[in-house]
Amino acid sequence: MEVHQLEALRAVRAHGGVTAAAAVLHLTPSAVSQQLAALQRDAGVPLTRRVGRGLRLTPAGEALADAAVDVAVAVERARAACAAFLDRPEGTVSVSAFQSGAQLLLPGLLARVGALGGIALECSDEDVAQGDFAALTDRIDVVVAHRPDGAGPWSGVPLRVVPLLREPLDVAVPLDHPLAAEERVRPGDLAGEDWITVREGFPVAGVLDAVAARAGRPPRIVQRINDFHVVAALVAAGHGVSLLPRFSAGPHPGVRLVPLADVAAGRRVEALLRPDRAERLVVRRVLDELVALAREVSGGPTPAPRGA
């Protein structure tokens, strides 16, 4: 069994088909199919089965894909053991973040990593639905993701999850709104308001659902917009209220952020990594800087890393 064949099997499991796996691996679908065929001949049992237009792993394929993670981790640990003897590890590390997280963290991270020398950061913004963050780790070394308080574990692929910070979500109201003078608001105070919120499936939407449940009535959603700067402009103009993150939304002269009481209103910002890439020394250096930066931004300690 070859390492690249096991990698192909993992990619097919994560992305549900040969074509999608090929795009992540920068190969042709034919090349991925050939690698799977060779791996199956070596294993001696069927590893995949056709489901509609996609490809799913058999129980044997699932077991081998799990074992492939251990193989990839072992290979990267071996490389890291050698890299530890370098005076200054060098390499390129890719980092992505959802848009408001990118605004909050990427400028400082670039400065911190630049001061280390020898490490080039390739940054991108990836604002995807909550269920799609984990799959990004197949092509990006460090994925900065977010999920609401109380959300279940990340799923889809094996992950190392590193907590960065918890960001409260406050109620954004225009300055002339009756609630703008309050120190905090409760869900019941928001009954009957017009809401501007993110698209369905995105993390902040789940927090609004919790607020509505405590208020005892569904929210009246008038607009769905993911860009928090646009949301703030609409709130300031009197088109509705919203939930905005306290650290990353940025101040707006026409908006007051009021803390929300009686409900866990916040999102957890975390770094997601494939277990093998988390072993790379240059990735670990970048991750250390990211954790330190998040602690600085939030003004508090960062919890210990955990699994998916």
Rank of each mutant, 00 (worst) to 15 (best):
A210Y: 01
V128C: 14
A151M: 10
P163R: 05
A213T: 03
P148K: 12
R147Q: 13
R224W: 06
V161A: 14
V222G: 01
D176R: 13
L169P: 08
D170E: 11
R214C: 07
R224P: 11
R184V: 06
L175M: 10
D209K: 07
G152S: 04
N226F: 00
R160K: 05
I221P: 00
L190W: 05
I221L: 01
A212V: 03
P153E: 09
L169I: 03
V171R: 02
H177C: 02
V144C: 05
I221R: 00
H146G: 15
A151P: 12
D138S: 14
D138I: 13
W195V: 07
P174D: 08
A210C: 01
P187C: 03
P203A: 08
Q223V: 01
D141T: 12
L208T: 02
P163Q: 05
L208I: 04
V162A: 08
P203E: 02
L190M: 12
V198Y: 07
V157A: 09
E167Y: 08
F133N: 14
L165Y: 06
V128E: 15
V204S: 12
G201N: 05
A129Q: 14
R160H: 04
A145G: 12
R147K: 11
R184G: 13
E167C: 08
E167V: 13
N226L: 05
R220K: 03
V211G: 07
R199M: 13
L179R: 02
E167M: 11
R217F: 01
D227N: 04
G188C: 05
D141F: 10
E182R: 11
T137Y: 14
E193H: 10
I140T: 15
I225A: 01
V171K: 02
D189G: 10
H146T: 15
V171A: 09
G188M: 04
V142I: 15
G216W: 00
P178F: 07
T137G: 14
A205R: 12
G216C: 04
S155H: 08
G156N: 10
D127T: 09
A151H: 08
V173E: 00
V173I: 09
P168L: 04
N226K: 02
R147C: 06
R160Q: 07
R139Q: 13
V157T: 10
D138P: 07
P178L: 06
F202P: 03
P187G: 03
T197R: 11
P219R: 00
H177D: 03
E167K: 02
V162F: 08
I225R: 02
G131W: 06
R214H: 11
N226Y: 01
P153F: 01
E183W: 08
F133T: 09
A215P: 01
V171P: 08
D170G: 10
L208V: 04
L175Q: 10
R220Q: 04
G216A: 01
V222Y: 02
R224M: 06
G206R: 10
I225Q: 03
L208N: 03
V157K: 03
